[in-house]
Amino acid sequence: MAEIKEKICDYLFNVSDSSALNLAKNIGLTKARDINAVLIDMERQGDVYRQGTTPPIWHLTDK
Rank of each mutant, 00 (worst) to 15 (best):
M1Q: 15
M1R: 14
A2R: 13
A2M: 13
A2T: 10
E3C: 01
E3F: 03
E3P: 06
I4H: 09
I4G: 05
I4Q: 07
K5M: 03
K5R: 11
K5I: 04
E6H: 03
E6P: 01
E6K: 13
E6C: 02
E6M: 09
E6S: 06
K7D: 04
I8P: 05
I8G: 05
I8R: 07
I8E: 07
I8A: 03
I8W: 00
I8L: 00
C9F: 14
C9P: 09
C9Y: 14
D10I: 04
D10Q: 13
D10N: 14
Y11M: 06
Y11I: 10
Y11S: 09
Y11K: 09
Y11C: 09
L12G: 05
L12F: 02
F13P: 10
F13N: 15
N14M: 10
N14H: 14
N14E: 14
V15G: 07
V15T: 06
S16Y: 02
S18I: 00
S18L: 01
S18W: 04
S19T: 09
A20S: 09
A20V: 05
A20R: 03
A20W: 03
A20P: 02
A20H: 03
L21P: 11
L21S: 13
L21F: 10
N22W: 03
N22V: 10
N22D: 13
L23F: 00
A24S: 06
A24P: 04
K25R: 12
K25Q: 12
K25I: 03
K25F: 00
N26K: 12
N26P: 03
N26Q: 13
I27N: 04
G28E: 10
G28A: 05
L29W: 02
L29D: 13
L29G: 13
L29Y: 11
T30S: 14
T30I: 08
T30W: 07
T30F: 09
T30E: 15
K31E: 15
K31C: 15
K31A: 11
A32Y: 12
A32Q: 12
R33K: 13
R33L: 12
R33V: 15
R33N: 14
R33F: 14
D34N: 07
D34S: 06
I35Y: 01
I35A: 08
I35P: 09
I35R: 03
N36S: 10
N36L: 08
A37G: 07
A37V: 01
V38P: 09
V38K: 06
V38R: 04
V38I: 13
L39D: 11
I40Y: 13
I40R: 12
D41Y: 00
D41M: 04
D41G: 07
M42H: 01
M42K: 08
M42W: 01
E43K: 01
E43L: 00
E43V: 00
E43F: 01
R44V: 07
R44G: 07
R44S: 10
R44Y: 03
R44H: 08
R44E: 11
Q45N: 13
Q45L: 04
Q45K: 04
Q45W: 00
Q45G: 01
G46M: 04
D47Q: 14
D47M: 14
D47G: 00
D47P: 01
D47S: 11
D47T: 15
V48D: 07
V48G: 02
V48L: 04
V48W: 02
V48R: 02
Y49G: 12
Y49P: 04
Y49S: 14
Y49L: 09
Y49T: 14
R50K: 14
R50M: 03
Q51A: 10
Q51N: 12
Q51C: 13
G52V: 02
G52D: 11
G52W: 04
G52N: 12
T53S: 10
T53N: 11
T54G: 08
T54W: 04
P55D: 13
P55T: 09
P55W: 02
P56E: 09
P56Y: 02
P56L: 02
P56V: 11
P56G: 07
I57G: 05
I57Q: 10
I57H: 10
W58F: 09
W58I: 07
W58Y: 11
H59A: 15
H59N: 09
H59C: 14
L60E: 09
L60D: 07
T61Y: 00
T61S: 12
D62C: 10
D62I: 02
K63P: 07
K63T: 08
K63L: 03
